[in-house]
């Protein structure tokens, strides 16, 4: 298995709080890695270290062997790291199609072109992506009037626009109905396998985690306390303690 992303001994403190404390893990090509942990475990900080929003105090992040620490989020995106957000962020004054075109325009460095009309640029590519996430019929609708689940699919299409090697998905199913969650994760998993993309995602819904993740890592108070296949993590005593202690149900 080829390793796409490897995080090595990542550290980040805020004042005296060790938000991320010597965390190392790897994401393999074509796999979904779930990062779980109670609130305040350091998941968001960890994400921000990976995508360049925050500089780590120590450690390294490598994408296909290239060091990412020190690069801006935009540079990291250009190297092939796509992102989706916990609360969807789309361009509300544009249609679904135009939202996907934006990522293609940016990818092809057309941001300041004033010669061609947007309506003539990358329409087929954008439609192909929308087709893949099942949003082609709604391509001409305004993004601002979409149902939340559809918006999540648009985000996925947008994140695929730069032909990423890795997708960072922050709670991809937050705010969705249970059935939609399963559908979205199934879609993500299918795309990941057919395009050999890797996914690192955080998630609170254990059904989603155990249903779709190939590997799971568990953070608690900034430290990585367990990692492995979902079954192994589920049976880990320490993990069970943390989750039972915080009141979440952990039964399969």
């Amino acid at each position: 298995m080829t390793v796409v992303l490897s995080a090595n001994n990542l550290r980040k403190s805020f004042g005296g709080v060790k938000a991320v404390d010597d965390v190392s893990f790897e994401v393999e090509a074509g796999r979904l890695l779930a990062m779980i942990g109670p609130n305040g475990a350091g998941k968001t900080t960890c994400f921000n270290l990976l995508n360049g929003q925050l500089p780590p105090d120590g450690g390294s992040v490598e994408l296909d062997g290239k060091e990412l620490v020190g690069l801006t989020p935009r540079e990291i995106w250009r190297l092939g790291v796509g992102r989706t957000f916990q609360i969807t962020a789309t361009f509300g004054s544009m249609t679904v199609l135009e939202n996907v075109q934006m990522t293609l325009l940016s990818y092809h460095k057309q941001n300041v072109s004033i010669t061609t009309m947007v309506s003539d640029l990358y329409v087929d590519e954008a439609m192909a992506l929308l087709e893949r996430v099942g949003m082609a019929e709604q391509a001409e609708r305004a993004c601002s009037i979409l149902a939340y689940g559809d918006l999540k699919r648009v985000e996925l299409a947008v994140a695929l626009g730069n032909e990423p090697r890795l997708l960072l998905m922050d709670e991809p199913t937050a705010g969705m109905a249970p059935r939609e969650r399963i559908e979205l994760m199934q879609l993500t998993a299918d795309i990941v396998r057919e395009r050999n993309i890797s996914v690192l995602f955080t998630e609170h819904d254990m059904d989603v985690v155990f249903g779709h993740a190939d590997q799971v890592i568990v953070l608690n108070r900034g430290a990585l306390i367990a990692q492995g296949k979902p079954e192994e993590v589920r049976n880990d005593v320490q993990v069970q303690e943390i989750y039972l202690g915080s009141g979440s149900t952990f039964a399969a």
Binding site: A89, S106, S113, T116
Partner: peptide, 23 residues
């Protein structure tokens, strides 16, 4: 109606998303 106008509007609609797609 050209990329210059659209990308500028993208930055207004959602700076977060715009930054995340390399704008």
């Amino acid at each position: 109606f050209t990329p210059f106008g659209y990308i500028t509007r993208a930055g207004r609609d959602s700076p977060l998303r715009a930054d995340a797609i390399g704008i």
